[in-house]
Design a binder for these strands. Sequence first.
DNA 1: CCAGGCATTTGAACACGTTCAAAAAAGGCT
DNA 2: AGCCTTTTTTGAACGTGTTCAAATGCCTGG
Lengths: 244, 244
Amino acid sequence: MTSTNSQPDRTPAAGRPASSKSEETRARILGSALASFRTRGFHQTTMREVAVDAGVAVGAAYYYFDSKDALVMAFYERAQQEMEPLLSEALSSHDALERRLRALLEVKFDYFRANRSLLGALSAHVDPQHPLSPFSEETREIRDKDIWFFARALEGTSMRVPADLKARLPRILWMYQMGLLLFWMYDRSAEQARTRQLVDKSLAIVVSLIQFSGFPLMRPVRKRVVDLLQTVFGDEPVPARIEA
Amino acid sequence: MTSTNSQPDRTPAAGRPASSKSEETRARILGSALASFRTRGFHQTTMREVAVDAGVAVGAAYYYFDSKDALVMAFYERAQQEMEPLLSEALSSHDALERRLRALLEVKFDYFRANRSLLGALSAHVDPQHPLSPFSEETREIRDKDIWFFARALEGTSMRVPADLKARLPRILWMYQMGLLLFWMYDRSAEQARTRQLVDKSLAIVVSLIQFSGFPLMRPVRKRVVDLLQTVFGDEPVPARIEA
DNA sequence: CCAGGCATTTGAACACGTTCAAAAAAGGCT
DNA sequence: AGCCTTTTTTGAACGTGTTCAAATGCCTGG
């Protein structure tokens, strides 16, 4: 398991009662941490504060979570888990690609609205070596699950997309989404109005581009772009499906 | 002055001898720091090490540099300064846009080759609030100077570029460059072969796109893209020229 | 009911970046 | 030279994330 914390094997094993005191403590620590992150921000929040708030010693916090970052990772994991049904529902209520993509984005924005700064702590790092980077090995599982939704968004629409591009598109769309979220995180305009504009305008362009990409005239350009993507992302076009 | 360090007003003022002992100490500290950054990496390097290495107390390091980050900033400033003549020369030896852009990129890659990890410390942060972010206020001056070179790369070529796009292009090309550098920083392929491929392929595409953008057929798409850029970057198309 | 093992909890201690009050050195002025 | 201001230097101390040996609790097999 490529998980956040090492010590307690969380999956409620054989004989153990599913909801031990341990799990409760863990939850209490995570709760205190996230609350503090939200109100004071990630950097201002102290592990000692978190511990006191949860009524334990600092060491206990480190018993359940390998690091301060791991607390953010736990949030991220929980977020992905909680959003999955919402994302599925979003897809099942729309047909047109633009609508489908927009629906996915809206779920994300809604969910993260209350946690903009927390999301910032998550994605502030570009280094793929850093655990909290959206490109790190540690976040791969979550990332792959998320990319998979973009694959579904493409599958379920009637728009014809050339196969070579289609194989690459989920990952590209995921990166597009990350760009939007990034812009949104640091968007200081009132009510993040600029992000809203950006979403509207860029989404229209993205969908147009995908549409154009099928025209015979576009074939040479498309080939070159797909070749470029191959260089950047290597093989493994779409992440393997992950069973729930 | 939006400088890195606050205390000693470095510009050798009126009566003072230009190269005081102070400047030498400062240089010694910076030297020790950069050497250590290069060999041990940014994070492994300790301010105490740096101080010992430079033969001063840790307080002294903080007298000359506001923070550990400021040392990296000093490197960045020096890098920009030292590269400027090289960049000018690169531009003056080529006419075609692709050649001109490639020449700029080559100067950067050459210069940073020995300092890949240091560059990583510089650009690992996406948060525009973080001083070391390529998008921060603190790095604006350097960034603007750099963007200016892309403006010159465009000016000096015979390719016709629509005015509305041309106004936005320097910044876009700069971001394109940052993307390449980022990829390069974390490129683990032998001799960074993947980055080389990426540069070749993407550069060809970028230049083609710019060329296409002038075709009458492309006008509507271009308008939409330019409008999008306006949303993202706001006004002030190209940074004001900065006199040396 | 107890012994032994395992899970949990504790808080002191460490290494780090950074701050600061005070000491030392260096100038400048008469 | 002597005094006073400014620049430079020092190293202890602070707050942080994190580690760790030891203490405590909990449960199970006898």
